[in-house]
Design a protein around this nucleic acid. Sequence first.
DNA 1: GGTATTTGACCGCT
DNA 2: AGCGGTCAAATACC
Length: 273
Amino acid sequence: MDQILTQILDACRQAQDLDRSLRLSDVALDPDFLLATCEDLAAAFHQAAAALRARVLPFEPPRVEQQGAQLSPLRRESPSERRLSKKRKKGAVTRTVPAVRIGDAVVPLDDGYTWRKYGQKDIHNSKFPRSYYRCTHKSFYGCGAKKQVQMLDDDPSTFEVTYRGEHTCQTSTTPLFIPSIPVDVENRGPVDGEGSTVQLHLQAMAGPSSSSQPQIHSWLGGENRGPGDGEGLSGQLQLQATAGPSSSQPQFQSWLGGEIRGPGDGEDPSAQF
DNA sequence: GGTATTTGACCGCT
DNA sequence: AGCGGTCAAATACC
């Protein structure tokens, strides 16, 4: 548990650092810096939340649409996908995952498991290669879980992730894409003696799907800048941090929109994220 | 030295 | 025959 608390506190410190940076204004004018920082923050809180879920909830596989389920009308199968779907084995499940930038690399949002890459292939009629991963604990626990990751041709900010097999290992953290429970973490640390409060609120927002929405936005310069624009987005992860008791406005807001395809959209919003 | 990643080759399915 | 999925040797990284 100490390790989880350390993760949370580290994330909180990052948020406080950003708060200070924003007050200094210079770096606050750099959208690239802000985007990178927000994404780092999101990843840090995400990992802490995953670790907490691993403690709170028993093991549960990712709640995702079943393979072969009808796709959203906004997301038609490409020829290659149609071909692949014929070949996919029964039981495989696919979902779209927002991309996050970690350093120079763009990777799918962490799903809470640890994976080992064992292959990569260029796929016919796809611009981007497909990567193949298996559970890191395959050798130790004989865990047969695998996943395939591929960037979408028409939306490089989104990855299509296909899961196969089930995790039999117990050491992996519980996946992030499980029924949402609001997580509120308050850290009333002695920073600057002001009793700064950093709140993390992860919540799923129900609504009609809209795959045309960009997946990740910086709060500066984007078309979608806040909750108002978020209406109608499905499966959004909201990360909002406020710092300082005297703040009359949020210091930053990062919106990560992870649309989840399939007929389940809107029917069972609690199953998203 | 151990572990993870890369990448060409191989195999099975359609 | 073409393609996707996996293997395994080579390489990189810690």
